[in-house]
């Protein structure tokens, strides 16, 4: 696999860039959630095991797997942010594949939009965590 030397260089050389790597990770997550028995693995969150409190990412595996089987309600119940993240990641993977096929440029959000999105993401993570702690105790 030819890894990119930066977004600009990759765009010029037509090689894999960071966006494509993230898209590949997202696509891989769908394949794993859909075709591998990840829920059969006997793993318990260390924070939950020690303190009885779910961590911020608890339930995400269940959310990914349920959404991969189109069980939207169960995915949202397991972790709302996990379900949203899975949907967003898989949509991004599909979009990036389409963008590559059509040779469209990668839209780049400005720094202000990037900061806003980062803040929204952090707030969503914290809200999701509070939801998990309150509902799963």
């Amino acid at each position: 696999m030819a890894l990119a030397e930066g977004p600009c260089a990759s765009a010029r050389k037509g090689r894999l860039g960071h966006a494509e790597v993230f898209a590949a990770i997202a696509a891989l997550s769908f394949l794993v959630a859909r075709f591998l028995p990840v829920l059969a693995f006997p793993y318990e969150c260390p924070l939950r095991a020690l303190a009885g409190i779910p961590c911020a990412t608890c339930g995400m595996t269940h959310a990914f797997v349920h959404l991969a089987y189109a069980e939207v309600g169960r995915a949202l119940q397991a972790s709302p942010l996990g379900a949203a993240l899975a949907a967003g990641a898989w949509l991004f993977a599909g979009y990036d594949a389409l963008r590559l096929a059509l040779r469209l440029p990668l839209p780049r959000p400005g720094p202000r939009l990037g900061r806003v999105l980062a803040l929204v993401g952090i707030l969503a993570l914290l809200t999701n965590w509070a939801f998990l702690v309150v509902t799963h105790r």
Binding site: L47, I53, A56, W129, A130, V133, V134, R137
Partner: peptide, 9 residues
């Protein structure tokens, strides 16, 4: 957040 949520719960 874990502490705060735990206290709320």
């Amino acid at each position: 957040v874990a502490c705060a949520a735990g206290m709320i719960a």
